[in-house]
Design a protein around this nucleic acid. Structure first.
Lengths: 346, 346
DNA sequence: TTGAAAGCGATACCAA
DNA sequence: TTGGTATCGCTTTCAA
């Protein structure tokens, strides 16, 4: 691989000049620039960004750590991050922690060793401590969820209100016995969605019987198993509320296996929407029944998170570390489809 | 950020010794090692991998470039790559070319500037030339698809045979009028799947009428639009064969909108399976009807591709560039579900 | 067993 | 406008 020295030699100039040219710095004569470009081309020269970053102490790269890239929600967030990053000429390093907090820790260390300029994090660990990051002066912005001991900066959605609205929608349909399944309540999103549910039930004077609020894993299996068990309760719920994408699918699957018709016998309220890539087709239309869901602006979450991080990076460079508690809340939206209907009279 | 010098100073030893210790090299006294570790801990020292890579001329990192991470097929391939990489202590840089060949080029350049040790590529450009990579001595392994001008190394599936079997299955069910939709025939996977289809139809002495073989975009919309049009043909096909995941969904959606019952009125053969993350639940079970598909061993593709790349990287280091044409073909598997049935007699 | 010093490939200051 | 050279943080001879 040719280095800047090779180019300098071939062009008959100094390395400083080559550097000036390749970085389009002002104050170089056309003649010299041309010679340099020609030499660079002849040698197929490409600057080593490792060496460059080492010197300038900046990588123009940010790291993104999330629990599962394959999940449509996170994939869509990622699209938002990438879009915004491309505009700002930042590269991004994508890391999938596979919902494993030890792996997450390794990935964070690796990102810091790589000297990324900042990190976007949806931590799998609800007790994650930002201490290690702050100590190393690594700018970080949380998204989707906020660990208990952190106050920001973060980009999230208004989970409480969204969950409240969704529950109220079911109540307005006439449902009285509504059961909810959330992720581990240690995770902020799960706790907030449970809170919105409780608020709405309380406001309507409705009880939440034993077994009607379950928290399990934020996964397909979690929704599946919980739905199976909830359908054994008596009195049986007339509506189920699943608080993320995977759980929604799991519940629908359980109902199908039990031969319980949705929405005729039981309504299902889901969470997260099901958009597919750039063409805007919604996956929801592929399912049967098409799930009514609380849709998060995933793409926007990604964009906002990156914007906030870049502001924070500049802040670090300028020396002031304020804005540490700024939390951006984006609005969710109820998308009514087929899986919800008034309850059967009983 | 503390550097190796700071540690050396605090421990009262030379930087060379610190380096020796942190890299667990043999031949350092326990005493010295202890002093160094204590100092490193006290300072919260973490080696700069940029500087290290610059010096050792190796990053222990490989780049993966794919057209769409959000697609379940590629996401699953990625899981395979990550699993294998973790075992071998390699980091991976994930790049989403968003089916944009200019962006793909930028990403490749960025990866090379970052001095990754090798690249895994599913190029969006069927006429991609590996010239640029070879000239810069960058080891590359293609996966999923192989550009026309390249002969390997690559990891792919036996598309021709898989498509042949799938078509034969439909024929054995009694179908005579079978239509297929593929991606652009310039892409090797699409061409191979079309070939398997033709072979099977030919072997059975069946014609492929005008309009029965369409190639469009490898997307949901492509499958959707094609199915709409194929259903207008006369005579109308009794079975449709979609040759990737998104197209399969698009076709099912089109049939539903047209009010055409699947599989009672028209059978649909799909491609790619629908597994969801590590829990092994198949997405296929969420759809109605559940699609019969040709399942690719996506996860294995990822693992094999990484293994092959690592062998290739070692080869480059040892100076011999052979194995450039080795193509690994993995086997697909027909998974019969609900979307296929014998044709209605007419 | 430990340390001094050269060098990886860039950038940037300062002098010419 | 151009060039010489120190420097970024680390590894790696080679000599002590």
């Amino acid at each position: 691989m040719p280095t800047i020295r090779d180019v300098a030699k071939l062009a008959g100039v100094s390395v400083a000049s080559v550097s000036a040219v390749t970085n389009n710095r002002t104050g170089v004569s056309r003649k010299l620039a041309e010679r340099v470009w020609k030499a660079a081309e002849a040698l197929d020269y490409h600057p080593d960004s490792l060496a460059r970053s080492l010197r300038v102490r900046r990588t123009e790269t940010i790291g993104v750590v999330m629990p599962q890239i394959a999940s449509p929600f996170y994939a869509e967030v990622l699209r938002g991050v990438e879009t915004e990053a491309k505009q700002k000429d930042y590269s991004i390093l994508i890391c999938d922690s596979a919902a494993d907090s030890a792996l997450e820790q390794r990935l964070l260390n690796s990102l810091m060793a790589r000297r990324v300029d900042g990190i976007l994090l949806a931590s799998v660990d609800p007790h994650f401590s930002a201490h290690q990051l702050l100590r190393r002066r690594m700018p970080v912005v949380f998204f989707d969820r906020l660990p208990a001991s952190c106050r920001g900066p973060a980009v999230m959605v208004n989970n409480v209100e969204g969950s409240f609205e969704a529950t109220r929608y079911l109540i307005n349909l006439g449902h009285r016995r509504i059961a909810i399944i959330t992720g581990s309540l240690a995770i902020s999103t799960a706790a907030e969605r449970a809170e919105g549910f409780r608020n709405a039930m309380g406001a309507a004077g409705l009880p939440i019987p034993e077994g009607y609020l379950r928290s399990g894993e934020f996964r397909l299996e979690g929704g599946y198993k919980c739905a199976l068990e909830m359908m054994k309760l008596s009195p049986r719920p007339t509506a189920l509320f699943a608080t993320n994408y995977e759980m929604t699918l799991g519940m629908l699957r359980a109902l199908r296996e039990l031969g319980i018709k949705c929405p005729q016998e039981v309504s299902v309220m889901g969470f997260d929407d099901f958009v597919m890539g750039a063409d805007g087709f919604s996956w929801a239309t592929m399912f049967s029944p098409q799930p009514t869901t609380v849709a998060q602006p995933s793409y926007e979450i990604g964009r906002e998170a990156l914007k906030l991080l870049l502001r924070r990076i500049e802040g670090f460079e300028d020396g002031h570390q304020d804005g540490q508690e700024s939390v951006v809340r984006l609005r969710v939206e109820l998308r009514v489809r087929e899986s919800t209907a008034p309850p059967v009279l009983s």
